[in-house]
């Protein structure tokens, strides 16, 4: 058994036997995926529900639009009550040829939507009744735009975030604990090269990242969450690897500075949490103010996220890897170099 293989095996065993680490690497990010996935799950496809009184072609056509769901009421008063109470954004009352729309002024977005749809329907029926052929025809076509359904940006985002956690924590805690317990000195006294030790540790982190990728994508693909992978998903693999090395380098830096495991996890959290929020892990970064988007470019997670989104859900090809990969490689080299310079074998 070579030193490389047995060191890797030792680290994998240590990892698998540590419930706490397993939790933070797999279950903790998965929890976020499940919670956010369920919370935000249907928000895009929700029909707007309004109260309806009466019957006739207007109401039938409204239902056929697919955008409005009608809640039938026997009388105007009870329908009105629903709107007054804020339970429903609007009520449509049809009596003969008269269509009355009562809407709550507080929710302008819903009101605008309902108003547009109802007036559209009314106009269309009027045209039909006047026997006039429409001059303009409207055709609609949907495309995958930048604003994705929540699960579509959550999965790549949370996966990248989870990899940053396992990379930074893995490297930092291993280094601190090995230094504190003098395993580093012990290794230094053995005829094994630093490269062997380092590469076996990085390889274990990369293996972890791939396992995270498989686990998270598998969960997100479940019908409840409904992730749809587009394009060449396997292009995510180079990003997994390069992201891991970049975050591993960050972890090495943290580990070089911190003397205790507690200090190292504190420092790792201080780095990861703001980075996760600013890099679009939980919310698309496009919604942030422009200056914040600029700031977020300093984080490797932002670029990893962008790359992951492109190849997993935006259906982009290999060209989408160029910028993120270049940034991650540069980050690994620079941070890794600094970490190597301040590395200490012992306290």
């Amino acid at each position: 058994m070579t030193a490389f293989r047995s060191l890797s095996a030792a680290m994998i065993k240590g990892f698998l036997r540590d419930k706490m680490t397993l939790f933070f690497v797999f279950l903790f990010p998965l929890m976020f995926l499940v919670v956010f996935g369920l919370l935000l799950g249907d928000s895009g496809s929700d029909k707007t529900k309004i109260a309806a009184v009466g019957d006739g072609p207007v109401l039938t056509t409204l239902e056929q639009t697919g955008a409005i769901e009608l809640e039938k009421h026997g009388d105007v008063a009870s329908a009105r009550q629903k709107v007054d109470d804020g339970d429903l954004p609007a009520a449509v009352v049809v009596s003969g040829d008269r269509v009355e729309l009562i809407y709550a002024a507080s929710d302008q977005v819903a009101a605008g939507t309902v108003l547009g749809i109802v007036s559209g329907v009314v106009d269309k029926i009027n045209l039909g009744a006047a026997n006039v052929a429409p001059r303009f025809t409207l055709e609609t076509k949907s495309v995958e735009d930048a604003s994705l359904k929540p699960i579509q940006y959550l999965t790549p985002g949370i996966l990248s975030w989870a990899i940053s956690i396992s990379g930074v924590f893995g490297a930092a805690l291993t280094m601190v604990s090995w230094r504190k317990k003098q395993v580093l000195r012990r290794i230094r006294l053995a005829p094994v090269s630093t490269t062997t030790v380092l590469t076996s540790r990085v390889l274990v982190s990369i293996g972890t990242a791939v396992a995270q990728g498989v686990a998270f994508v598998a969960v997100a693909l479940l019908p409840v969450f409904g992730l749809k992978l587009t394009g060449q998903w396997y292009l995510a693999l180079p990003l997994l690897v390069l992201g891991t090395t970049a975050f591993f380098a960050v972890g090495m830096l943290v580990g070089a500075f911190c003397k205790t495991e507690e200090a190292a996890s504190g420092a790792a959290n201080i780095i990861i949490m703001p980075m996760a929020f600013l890099s679009g892990t939980f919310f698309p970064v496009e919604n942030a103010p422009p200056w914040l988007q600029t700031v977020s470019n300093v984080f490797p997670l932002r670029h990893m996220n962008d790359g992951m989104l492109d190849v997993l859900v935006r259906g982009k090809g290999v060209e989408a890897l160029l910028v993120p990969s270049a940034v991650l490689i540069a980050f690994t080299l620079v941070v890794g170099f600094i970490a190597a310079r301040i590395f200490r074998w012992e306290d």
Partner: peptide, 18 residues
């Protein structure tokens, strides 16, 4: 100085492999 979570035999095997 030991590796985390390894048994006595595994510690010896790992150090030995170095």
């Amino acid at each position: 100085s030991f590796f985390e979570k390894l048994t006595a035999r595994e510690q010896l095997q790992t150090f030995g492999s170095l």
